[in-house]
Design a protein around this nucleic acid. Structure first.
Length: 694
RNA sequence: GCCACCGUAGCUCAGUGGUAGAGCACACCCUUGGUAAGGGUGAGGUCAUGGGUUCAAGUCCCAUCGGUGGCUCCA
């Protein structure tokens, strides 16, 4: 006799097992008609899952009441939409083998193995979507049936889809005692798919489905395994929901740093220079310089020493550090000097030989540096150190070079040459905790100054099953504990992720999302017991004996390129005053005021502001429009009235109106205050106290 | 690197085998206008590059280069 507890706390008793659908019907026919699934004791289930014991039941309908219900609805709908799409695809390409089709936060995908002679193309989308609509109109019920493990495996073997067989075996490994299928309609007669569910009641409940894109994916994510075609789609309850989503995607695209970077002329990537190599325009360079000055200032306060080291070093250096053997495939090829190369050529050494010898250390060369740490380590080690010297903190805006795979390159966020705001701290065991915290503090200062709050913190630990890490487990344990403790002291939630450590040590990463939802690691702080070992670093302790220092690698911005890429998206190109390439533009109403405008602009420039003037013969409306599109923070409009009164009429970016006039000197000093304070939009606030905003 | 798609004027894009287009930007002229685009004229393209098919290629095929979305990788 199950007693069903509903979300409002009320209960209903039934004298036989019931389904959520029947529970819904007992409440009202309309509810039942809108129902698509349920949470039974918190678990997402089919609408007709039998409930035999007392349970709490929450009905999921097409009219969600809260975020959780909406998420559940979308999950059910999209998971089911993936089936409908797969059925449609198999109607069009009968030889396609299904692999795996999960729902996602923004839609769903289905990995499918297509016959080599019939790959899927975007040209097929229209036909597939037409089939999808047919299947939806057929309104067939999602029908679940189960089999015992042995029986089920036999069925799958007979069907000859190795992928599904593999899915089943994996399910069994994780403890499933039965295998389940969902037919869209009648089992044995209609289309079906091995699937744990749950699903909506019928194909008519799968919402508005749109196929989004094609991609390739490796089976089990293993690049040596089969290459599958991943078909991405999405589904929403209504056309309006879908349109809103597509609209949102388009808006995100307009915020994309690659789009804004081009439109505002912040950086340039040139085919002739090379893939993944950023050319910083004068405007982009202003932003980078401001950020570097900002961080340099913080570093001086925290007792860092700035150093310069070369972009290149001997291969042996990176053999010692481990970078060369470990990351050989993602570095630029070593540079072998001319004499050595001539000699090798003379003895008939082939390219393969050379590569082999370089790898074995039988030939030497230079490497464009993939990391700055080896240089800093050698600099540290060039002098004997007493414990009294420590911590030694060496900082450098160090440019590094990495051969990223061409398919990975992405605007400023994934490049082949980038500059880290890098530093290496050489500390005693006792100093480690405090120094780690100091590093995290720095990252926090940066994120706060730039009003970036939407980030997550990841503590990257080693994967105990992997052999890719160097060093003794005991040291790893110590280092991981230090990272965990430091992260705790940060006061924000963090996740511990095994397998995310660097090869030489664990790390604390700050991860942000770009406009299309991809995650990028920015700031990072890493504890390293291993490189000091490899380079045999030491300092003399109070006991007059040598001790091994611990190293901290840290880069609060991460890479200047990536950080600024993300920053462009964060501000949608409308930078705060201190970062704006052009801070203020003076707009004369007509040619008659050009002289006064020039006078103002040169005064502002003399005060240290980045000021320009628009003395084109456009009308003032056009000048404002143009400046607004260029996202200039402040505009000074001047006409004869202002010239007479020695004032400037002010506009702020994102504020749709004239903020009134200020005397020239006052305007300049307010701008300077705002510039120096970084981030406070004080002038705008002062001029528009009613809270006019973007 | 892999799969799919894309590459036409500085930018955004139209152009399905038969004489290369539009808007914006740019140059010049008119306009001297007080808060989100005044008007006119003009210049600008070996249609990414190289091959091929064809009487004829921006358009079809192949290769290369570059980009986009994913996958894999990311010190």
């Amino acid at each position: 006799m199950p007693v069903i507890t509903l979300p409002d706390g009320s209960t209903k008793e039934f004298n036989q097992p019931v389904s959520p659908y029947e529970v819904a019907r007992s409440i009202g026919e309309r509810l039942a008609a809108q129902s698509v699934g349920a949470r039974i004791n918190g678990e997402l289930c089919d609408l007709n899952t039998p409930i035999e014991r007392n349970a709490t039941v929450s009905i999921i309908t097409t009219r969600p009441r809260d975020e959780q219900q909406r998420a559940d609805l979308l999950m059910l709908m999209r998971h089911s939409a993936a089936h409908v799409m797969a059925e449609a695809i198999q109607r069009i390409v009968p030889g396609a083998h299904l692999v795996y089709g999960p729902p996602l936060a923004t839609g769903f995908y289905y990995d499918i193995a297509f016959p080599p002679d019939r790959p899927l193309s975007t040209a097929d989308f229209e036909a597939i979507e037409a089939e999808i609509r047919k299947i939806q109109q057929e309104d067939r019920r999602f029908t679940r049936y189960e089999m015992r493990v042995g029986e089920g495996l036999a069925k799958l073997r007979e069907e000859g889809n190795k992928y599904k067989l593999d899915n089943a075996e994996r399910a069994i490994e994780t403890g499933s005692e039965r295998l389940s299928w969902y037919a869209t309609g009648e089992p044995g007669k209609n289309w079906e798919d091995l699937c744990r569910g749950p699903h909506v009641p019928s194909t008519a409940h799968t919402g508005v489905i749109k196929i989004m894109s094609l991609a390739s994916a490796y089976w089990h994510g293993d690049e040596n395994s089969d290459r599958l075609t991943r078909v991405y789609g999405t589904a929403f309850p209504t056309q309006q929901d879908l349109d809103a989503y597509l609209n949102q995607l388009e808006e995100a695209r307009q915020r994309d740093h690659r789009v804004i970077g081009k439109r505002l002329g912040l950086f340039h990537i040139d085919e002739m220079v090379g893939q993944g190599l950023i050319l910083w325009t004068p405007k982009g360079s202003v932003i980078r310089n401001e950020l570097q000055n900002f961080i340099s200032h913080e570093l001086r306060r925290q007792g860092y020493h700035q150093v310069y080291t070369p972009q290149i070093g001997k291969l042996d250096l990176y053999r010692t550090s481990g970078h060369f053997p470990y990351y050989k495939d993602s570095q630029f090829t070593p540079i072998v000097d001319r004499e050595a190369l001539d000699a090798l050529a003379h003895e008939g050494c082939s390219c393969a030989d050379l590569s082999n010898r370089l790898e074995k250390g039988e030939a030497d060369g230079y490497l464009l540096r993939p990391m700055n740490c080896p240089h800093h380590i050698r600099l540290f080690d060039s002098q004997p150190h007493s414990y009294r010297d420590l911590p030694v903190r060496l900082a450098e805006f160090g440019t590094v070079y990495r051969w990223e795979q061409s398919g990975e390159l992405n605007g400023m966020t994934r490049v082949r040459c980038f500059t880290q705001d890098d530093a290496h701290l050489f500390v005693t065991e006792d100093q480690l905790a405090a120094e780690l915290q100091g590093c995290l503090e720095l990252v926090k200062i940066i994120f706060k100054t730039l009003e970036m709050s939407d980030y997550r913190v990841r503590v990257g630990l080693r994967d105990p099953d992997s052999s890719k890490y160097v060093g003794e487990p005991a040291k790893w344990d110590k280092a991981e504990a230090a990272c965990r403790d430091a992260a705790k002291s940060l006061g924000v939630p963090f996740s511990e992720e095994p397998g995310e450590a660097a090869f030489y040590g664990p790390k604390i990463d700050f991860v942000v999302k770009d406009v299309i939802g991809r995650e990028w690691q920015l700031g990072t702080v890493q504890v390293d017991y291993n490189l000091p070992e490899r380079f045999d670093l030491s300092y003399i302790g109070p006991d007059n004996r040598p001790h091994r220092p611990v190293m901290i690698h840290r880069a609060p911005f991460g890479s200047m390129e990536r950080f600024i890429g993300v920053l462009i998206e964060h501000f949608a190109g409308a930078f705060p005053l201190w970062l704006s390439p052009e801070q203020v533009r003076i707009l004369p109403i007509s040619e008659k005021s050009n002289d006064y405008a020039r006078e103002i602009a040169s005064k502002l420039r003399a005060d240290g502001l980045r000021a320009s003037i628009d003395d084109s013969d456009e009308r003032i409306q056009a000048k404002i429009k143009i400046a607004s599109e260029e996202k200039i923070p402040y505009l000074g409009v001047v006409g004869p009235r202002d010239a007479e009164a020695r004032t400037v009429s002010i506009r702020a970016h994102g504020v749709q109106k004239d903020l009134g006039a200020l005397p020239l000197d006052e305007f300049a000093s307010l701008l300077l205050d705002e510039y120096q304070s970084k981030g406070e939009r004080s002038l705008r606030r002062q001029m528009a106290p009613t809270g006019a905003t973007a």
